[in-house]
Simulated scan of single mutants.
Amino acid sequence: MVNDPEIQSDLSSHGSGHRARLRLRILTGQGAGLHDHELVEYLLALAIPRRDTKPLAKQLIEEFGGFSRLLVSDADVLANFPGMGKTSVAALKIVQVAALRLIAEPVRTQPILGSWQALLDYLRADMAHLAHERVRVLHLDSRNRLIRDELVSEGSIDQAAIYTREVIKRALALGSAAIILVHNHPSGDSTPSRQDIAITRDICAAGRTLGISVHDHIIIGRDGHTSFRSKGLI
């Protein structure tokens, strides 16, 4: 039996009955069974309440290549999609922000090396589906707690810059005892390139002379991840 007066009102309306059923499934713990387009449809309905948002939701899923890639897409690109506006884009992006904050909590409050899987989950959620390359450096204190998670550069579909001198200079400024390098491969393949290996070794050598450890370099791809440490590359 439905006790929520809003849902009862919607169920009695021919035009909003479907939306009310989606809401009911979410509120009664059945949200995991919703299709990706139904999740997007309901999010858009919050921003565009007087419109049937199912067609737009399906178009967005198809155009951007799936639910995850839709959520991480650039806000300006989303806003230029026919039928979308700033409020609709914000409805999608707030889900991304909330999800990342939820996943990141153990990473920010516990020693990184003791919550490694949580770190990988956070990085994959943030970077695996990006259409461009992103480089970031995680700065750690002597207890391996996160000092700063910094975006170093963003590039084209297959290239972003990382400079040994700038990485080490920033680590010294923050008083970092150790760092973890992270970047993604938009191709989806997390296999390191020769350039990835060379740059990592340069940063390791520079850090060693100044007492800054490089715990790992992690490459994120849609196929998973590659850890330089586990592969014996550093």
Score class of each variant (00 low, 15 high):
A128R: 09
A128P: 12
H129C: 14
H129D: 14
L130S: 12
L130A: 11
L130Q: 12
H132E: 13
E133D: 02
E133L: 04
R134K: 10
R134W: 15
R134M: 15
V135H: 15
R136E: 15
L138N: 02
L138T: 02
H139A: 15
H139S: 14
L140G: 09
L140C: 10
S142Q: 15
R143A: 15
R143L: 15
N144Q: 15
R145Y: 14
R145Q: 14
R145K: 13
R145N: 14
R145T: 11
R145P: 07
L146S: 00
I147P: 00
I147Q: 05
I147L: 14
R148I: 04
R148D: 09
D149S: 10
D149E: 11
D149M: 09
E150L: 08
L151T: 04
L151Q: 10
L151F: 08
V152A: 02
V152C: 03
V152P: 00
S153H: 02
S153D: 11
E154S: 07
E154Y: 04
E154P: 00
E154F: 05
G155M: 11
G155D: 08
S156F: 07
I157A: 06
I157G: 02
D158L: 08
Q159F: 12
Q159A: 12
Q159R: 08
A160H: 06
A161R: 07
A161N: 03
I162M: 13
I162A: 12
I162N: 05
Y163E: 09
Y163M: 05
T164H: 06
R165I: 06
E166W: 02
V167F: 11
I168G: 01
I168A: 02
K169G: 06
R170A: 01
R170P: 00
R170M: 03
A171F: 00
A171M: 01
A171K: 01
A171W: 03
A171D: 01
A171R: 00
A173G: 01
A173Q: 07
L174R: 08
G175T: 02
G175C: 04
G175F: 06
S176E: 05
S176F: 04
A177Q: 01
A177C: 01
A177S: 03
A177V: 00
A177T: 00
A178K: 02
A178V: 02
I179V: 13
I179A: 08
I179D: 11
I180F: 06
I180E: 08
L181V: 09
L181H: 05
H183Y: 13
H183L: 14
H183W: 13
H183K: 14
H183G: 11
N184C: 15
N184F: 15
H185A: 08
P186G: 07
P186R: 04
S187T: 07
S187N: 11
D189R: 10
D189S: 08
D189Y: 09
S190K: 11
S190F: 11
S190G: 10
S190A: 15
T191W: 13
S193P: 01
S193Y: 02
S193E: 02
R194S: 14
Q195Y: 14
Q195P: 04
D196Y: 06
I197H: 03
I197R: 00
I197C: 00
A198P: 03
R201H: 04
D202S: 12
I203C: 06
I203L: 12
I203P: 07
I203M: 13
C204H: 04
C204D: 10
A205L: 07
A206V: 00
A206K: 02
G207I: 01
G207T: 00
R208S: 06
R208M: 05
R208L: 07
T209F: 03
T209E: 05
L210R: 13
L210H: 12
L210P: 05
